[in-house]
Simulated assay, not measured.
Amino acid sequence: MTMLVLIHKECGGLALEESPVGEVCAIPVDRFPFPCFTCLEEIIDESELRLTQDLGI
């Protein structure tokens, strides 16, 4: 199963908690700012995020 993972560029950790479905969908712009799941710093906009794929291998 392929999972999309949002990474916080500042700390390199997960920006969002993994969803039970195993996928992270597009985040609506009105959800910003939100705290990084890993370091708890505020993520202001999508420029602070990077999207990766976890192939689950």
Rank of each mutant, 00 (worst) to 15 (best):
L14V: 02
F37A: 06
P33N: 03
E10N: 13
E46A: 10
G56V: 12
S47W: 00
V21F: 09
L51F: 08
G13R: 06
P28T: 02
K9C: 03
L55S: 09
H8F: 03
V29W: 09
E42M: 12
I27W: 01
I43F: 01
E42Q: 14
T38A: 10
R50Y: 04
G13M: 07
V24H: 12
L14N: 08
C25Y: 13
F32Q: 00
E46S: 13
V21D: 11
E48A: 15
L40S: 08
Q53T: 15
V29P: 11
V5M: 09
E18F: 12
E23M: 12
H8G: 05
E42V: 00
G12S: 02
L49D: 00
F37D: 02
H8R: 06
P33E: 02
F37M: 00
L55M: 09
V5H: 05
C39Y: 01
I43Q: 00
C39S: 00
L4C: 06
C11Y: 01
C11K: 01
I44K: 14
T2Q: 12
L14M: 07
G56R: 14
L16N: 04
I7N: 04
K9W: 01
I43V: 09
S19C: 05
L6R: 04
L6T: 03
C36S: 04
L49P: 01
L51A: 07
F32T: 02
A26L: 13
I44R: 14
E23K: 07
F37E: 08
E18L: 15
V24L: 11
A15L: 07
C11M: 02
R31S: 14
G12P: 07
C25G: 11
L16P: 01
E42S: 12
L4V: 15
